[in-house]
Design a protein around this nucleic acid. Structure first.
Lengths: 236, 236
DNA sequence: TGTACATCAGTGAACGCGCGTTCACTGATGTAC
DNA sequence: TGTACATCAGTGAACGCGCGTTCACTGATGTAC
């Protein structure tokens, strides 16, 4: 039931997350402080404890918030190329991740950078939202495999014991159906995607090595397609 | 000239770096504090200022120290397979990076993770040591190209304006000689290497998704070879 | 519809903590004559 | 070789800062009869 009080509470909750996001963006995750959030909220520091039970809980909220925003962004981008080729969908997904990360470097860092010292994200709350991108990526790759866009290696590589079992478990959990060689390639594509975005966001190329970093990203994209053996992609 | 005093000074300097390394490993870069280092050194906090002019200077020393240790590790590993094939050398280099990173996760994070808030590494001191790994990697790939181990794409991909100029500049600085398509592939290989290591060190696969992560790394390695078009590598 | 009580948001003071950095100082080590 | 002075390592107190969290409280809002 919605009373004025409960509506005010919901609004304040949102405010806290919004302010938290801003502080993250400006000062980084390690410097996120409840006192600073309280200041910006225009309230005494202890009042925040009516809404959030500790600094770690706020961090968790921000982690979930970040994963979900990234997940939404990626899913929206994919919806816009729903009937596109595997290459087009891979491209749309990858650029969506990159765009979000460059627009929100600190939040990207919270999700995919060095762990925040002394903070461990609680798996129950973050696992779901945290896997949305990889689930979407797997989906794109599986579809490409299903419609015959992936050129199989000859001979088929043998994936041995432990890893084979792990991939089997992944299939059981995610509903994936493609053979080991496809999933193995997907693993590396996933790594290239987040590796490339991290290089860009964390400025790991020297500051002035590349004039136009989206050209570099295009190179990575073309190479992702080569890893997959994806037909109809740019040459590289 | 070496007096007892100057020798004591050098020893204390080393101690400070050693203690700094330890604190980095245990508490992370953001939590590195001169007071804590002083405590472990068995000295009052202000005394550290005889050796180090600020917290940032200590961070810089640790960054340089880290790059150099990683560089040494990689070069030693490469020296052991000096006459090996491109594949063997790529493998040796990659595993050397991974081994060091897993043994020194916090130092790896300092070098390749989220930037430390409020700290900017001074380019003059860190650029040299910071490029040793990529220089070594380029060296391996260039040699492979030179001896004909790389299968060229057909048709050769066109690398346009800005990026072509950037690669030209890279060649001028590093003495590299291979064509654009080789350097473009090297870029992605570099990304896979550090992406894969970061995934592993920062625990970005779910905690229990993979039983044996070195098998996952082998998959990435095989795919690096596929990106390069490297003959004589494992199939993937 | 009005009253009595319960719930809850926000206050303000306090706790104990650790941090970076400065400063005037003591006493030991090094150097020039 | 011995003395006088300069250099330097380390001390201890202090500065001002921000942090997370607790607690007893006031006063407004919500609810049950």
């Amino acid at each position: 039931m919605s009373t004025p009080r409960s509506r005010a509470r919901a609004r304040t909750m949102d405010e806290i997350v919004r302010i938290g996001r801003e502080h993250l963006a400006v000062h980084g995750a390690a410097a996120l402080s409840l006192r600073a959030v309280a200041r910006d909220l225009g309230v005494v520091s202890s009042a925040v404890y009516r809404y959030v039970s500790s600094r770690d809980e706020l961090l968790t909220m921000l982690v979930v918030d970040g994963y979900n925003e990234l997940g939404d962004t990626v899913e929206t981008a994919l919806a816009a190329v729903e009937r596109g080729s595997g290459w087009e969908r891979l491209r749309a997904l990858s650029y969506a991740v990159r765009r979000w990360a460059l627009a929100e470097p600190a939040r990207y860092g919270l999700l995919f950078g060095t762990p925040v010292p002394g903070y461990q994200a609680p798996a129950e709350q973050t696992t779901g939202p945290g896997t949305r991108v990889i689930v979407a990526l797997l989906d794109v790759i599986e579809d490409a495999y299903r419609v015959g866009e992936l050129i199989a290696p000859d001979p088929l590589p043998v994936i041995s014991g432990d890893l084979h079992a792990d991939l089997e478990a992944m299939r059981a959990e995610s509903g994936a159906r493609s053979p080991d060689w496809v999933l193995a390639r997907a693993l590396t594509v996933w790594t290239v995607l987040f590796g490339a975005v991290s290089f860009d966001v964390f400025d790991m190329y020297g500051a002035r090595t590349f004039t136009d970093r989206s050209e570099v990203f295009d190179v990575h994209l073309a190479n992702m397609a080569r890893i997959l053996g994806l037909r109809g992609a740019a040459v590289s």
